[in-house]
Design a protein around this nucleic acid. Sequence first.
DNA 1: AGACTATAGTTGCCTACTCAACTACTTGTC
DNA 2: GACAAGTAGTTGAGTAGGCAACTATAGTCT
Lengths: 154, 154
Amino acid sequence: MTTTAKICPSGDERVKLFGLLLETNARLSRNLGVTLEASCALPLAWFEVLLLLRQSPEGHLKMNQIADAIVHTTGGTTRLIDRLEEAGFVSRRQCPSDRRAIHVGISTLGDEKLDQALNVHLDYLEENLAARLSEGERLTLTDLLTKLMATKTS
Amino acid sequence: MTTTAKICPSGDERVKLFGLLLETNARLSRNLGVTLEASCALPLAWFEVLLLLRQSPEGHLKMNQIADAIVHTTGGTTRLIDRLEEAGFVSRRQCPSDRRAIHVGISTLGDEKLDQALNVHLDYLEENLAARLSEGERLTLTDLLTKLMATKTS
DNA sequence: AGACTATAGTTGCCTACTCAACTACTTGTC
DNA sequence: GACAAGTAGTTGAGTAGGCAACTATAGTCT
């Protein structure tokens, strides 16, 4: 009762898991993106950058750190930061110790925007994450994803 | 020793989990995309569609089903299928019961390409998924993600 | 010091997407 | 059976991001 050999791999448990991972993420980001856009006029990518900057211990990051964290190329990141800077949410400053590098810091305006967006985001998470996964499950998920990311080669 | 109030939400466990989810996925897709592109000259989006078509019970799907599954707009999907069709991997046919609808089916060429890509994908999964997560962990992860996607509102 | 390699960031060109407006068909209502 | 409302897919215009080539600075080796 085997369907032809080539059918098998597409039904593989790991293939399915991977597909699920892709889909989950696509839906979550799309949804959050739409929500943020609608309520704060803030593109998801902007939100990611602002959040990242706030979380950074020194309050600023270099272009390549941002690029890596949001998984964009440095070229794409340059343009993204251009737009954020033009909107007044971040600012570029020369890095004192390396003249090639640039420090991107969040501005007061960006800070306010982020607060606003975080409120929306928290509501969103409450509705879409906390409502579906218990705290234990969330911890497990965090753990599993962390393992998946190990070595960042993934 | 609280830093100002506004710092808190950005450190929220759920915010972090969400960020991790975004990042994990971005890295995984980017990596697989590069791998597939390099070894099969097959863009990730094309792979997704081909896989989807093979997994579909009737061997074909309507445009809007594809759009939904890969989380694109119907506009974007039209163009994506245009390219796949031009490459000879899929074909459009009139749906007999609804003259607005179109059935997209995989071609022989597409089938072969998919086999080739699946080999690469399986190696990739072996290296990046199976090596990091035990079977039990993979099952748990599948379970959690499924819960997250429940109702598809997520 | 001088030369070679590596790294940080920007830019031009291109592709793939979104959004909104459109056409064509279907379904429901009277 | 005709008209309104909804649904499937396509198209034009706009945008964000990738790639590869470039500039400028840093580090390394002799």
